[in-house]
Amino acid sequence: MAAADYRELSLNGLWKNNPAIVQLLGLCPLLAVTGSVVNALGLAAATTLVLLCSNTAVSLIRNVVSDAVRLPVFVMIIAAAVTCIELLMQAFTYELYQILGIFLPLITTNCVILGRADAYASKNPLPLAMCDGLMMGLGFGIILVLLGALRELLGTGALFANMDLLFGPAAADWKVVLVEDYQAFLLAILPPGAFIFTGLLIAGKNLIDRQIKRRQDARKAQPVKGAKRVRVTGTIS
């Protein structure tokens, strides 16, 4: 369990195998609740917490549960974690709970969670499983919040409105108006905006990957001094 393992896990969750923009899992909540930063952050936190809990629990019991019943057990664990977190949000952030509505209980059906439980946590020791859950959750959450910020900014000209729903009355004035008198670009906060901006985020990620690859290839392709040509096609000039 070298540090390299953790680095690999983080890189996977946050970038290479990002649940939202590479695996394209959990798109339904991703599209539905990212109209503002506060909504996105609420769902991101809930999802990350569920992932962390379920990965932890699944890893702990991985040697007890037989293959035949492992899926029903995992589902029970996930459903219990989701229900508990839903109750907690209802108690402490009631208005946000109402805004997120059906998408909180639906975390249960987010494929990322059962996927990580079965594919990773059930085969790996506790610390690694926890790290994986956290990083996958963060990877999903960061995209959620990024999309929320993008859409809120373009759609309203401000950021961090209504943060008091999540952080209590002290956060009521966190709202930052970036453009005064902004001509709201409503498309961004309406449902089609979710699709368009998710697409653009995926495209942006692919573009960065391609740049990185091109740079690596360029480095590799640098001619080694004294190398011999093995085969030549065409004319030698």
């Binding site: 549960v65 057990v73 459903a79 219990a80």
Partner: peptide
């Protein structure tokens, strides 16, 4: 053995939810 296991997990998770509730 498997049924017992499932039963145990059902009880544990239900207790957890009931407690939170």
């Amino acid at each position: 053995r498997n049924s017992l296991l499932l039963g145990v997990f059902a009880v544990i998770t239900t207790l957890l939810i009931a407690g939170t509730y």
